[in-house]
Nucleic acid binder design. Structure first.
Length: 379
DNA sequence: AAGCCGTGGGG
DNA sequence: TCCCCAAGGCT
């Protein structure tokens, strides 16, 4: 057995002993010398978990995974689900294009011709062609659910491998080099357990800030450890500072005590918070861009309003300070309900709708709007 | 191909 | 407080 073989064997033994117990995962190492795919797990659950885990922590995913699998136990059930309900169930998890792709992928799988209906493709290439599955997810599902040998590289593997081989090429340029090195380590058998083991190692031992090399089964093979500077790898460029944006959302209600409703809009499928229900807003103009207002606008609305407060929210590439303007308080003489046509809402996205305040939690607002709503409507 | 796309937790 | 980052994909 070569050096790479020794490393993967050590990693698999470590995984057999210390694998995290996760809802979508089968227990490893039940059968020494097992055949390929001996640990294969339900492809639907593997796929769903992998999509949820894209750029998202395990702790954040677990409750969503439990709710989704309870409500939609099979890919066929998910394919038949109302898309709005899926989006609402995804609310709070972020990167909402994943939810739209999730539905599209479920429909594609459920609609596969012949005996394949409702069955995921079992090859990496077949999986890669499905919406929402990129290089990582296709490889992960092929390996974990179908026992295929696939080279699985996520941010954990990138970090572990960059350290093992002291790869100094900065990311993302270094990705090719890292993938090639991962390929040499990946075993023909148990590629899925190997991938999960590498990810567990990265998540629990070979961590970004303070790697626990004393606990690492690969420490004696690790070039960065030999150099005494594990955290020097992988090399990454510094991120650009986030610009600040400001915006104003509108809290428009109607109805009497106990029967109040709030005006919600469906955001366009593309762009920020695409496809999600939201409070109408003015488009979050960037500071200093002339105050250009895109989106819903508020000019046509009659009646007095006041600013109830503001929330701060940080997105991937900008931060936002969102004011909440409250229209038509309960005692207002203005009946906005009679002014339906003038209410804001993107027609192509389905316009807007009055939503009972008592059931606001079920609307599935993205965190930004949930925070804003909390200013005037306690949970 | 570089920018867009959420959120919450940890140091 | 602020910065970094997490089982990335799409355009």
């Amino acid at each position: 057995m070569g050096r790479a073989g020794g490393m993967s064997a050590r990693l698999l033994r470590w995984y057999d002993a210390y694998a995290r117990v996760l809802p979508w995962r089968e227990r490893p190492g039940q059968m020494p010398g097992q055949i390929p795919g001996a640990n294969r797990a339900d492809p639907y659950r593997v796929w769903l978990s992998e999509v949820m885990l894209q750029q998202t922590t395990v702790a954040a995913v677990i409750p969503y995974f439990e709710r989704f699998t309870q409500r939609w136990p099979t890919v066929a059930a998910l394919a038949a689900a109302d898309e709005g309900e899926v989006m609402a169930a995804w609310a709070g998890l972020g990167y909402y294009a994943r939810a739209r792709n999730l539905v599209a992928c479920a429909k594609a799988v459920a609609g596969r011709p012949g005996d394949g209906a409702g069955v995921f493709p079992d090859s990496e290439a077949g999986l890669r062609a499905l919406p929402g599955l990129g290089a990582y997810t296709a490889a992960a599902v092929a390996a974990i659910a179908f026992g295929q040998r696939a080279v699985v590289v996520d941010a954990n593997v990138e970090r572990v491998v960059a350290r093992l081989f002291a790869i100094a090429t900065p990311l993302p340029a270094g990705k090719a080099e890292i993938r090639a090195a991962t390929d040499t380590l990946t075993p023909d058998l148990r590629a899925g357990d190997f991938a999960q083991g590498m990810m567990d190692l990265g998540a629990t031992v070979c961590t970004t800030r303070a790697p626990a090399c004393l606990l690492c089964p690969l420490a004696k093979d690790c070039a960065a450890h030999a150099q005494g500077d594990e955290t020097a790898y992988p090399v990454k460029a510094r991120k650009a500072p986030k610009p600040e944006r400001r915006g104003r959302a509108f809290w428009i209600t109607r109805g009497g005590e106990g029967q109040q409703e709030v005006w919600l809009v469906r955001r366009p499928a593309r762009g920020m918070l695409g496809g999600m229900l939201a409070l109408p807003d003015d488009g979050w103009s960037a500071k200093g861009d002339g105050g250009s207002v895109r989106g819903d606008g508020v000019a046509p609305l009659p009646g007095p309003w006041h600013v109830a407060g503001a929330v701060a929210h940080v997105f991937t590439h900008f931060s936002l300070r969102l004011e909440l303007a409250v229209y038509s308080p309960v005692d207002s003489p203005v009946d906005l309900g009679a002014d339906w046509d003038s209410l804001p809402g993107d027609a192509e996205a389905g316009g807007g709708r009055w939503w009972p305040l008592a059931r606001l939690a079920e609307a599935g607002l993205p965190t930004l709007y949930a925070k804003a709503a909390r200013l005037v409507w306690p949970q």
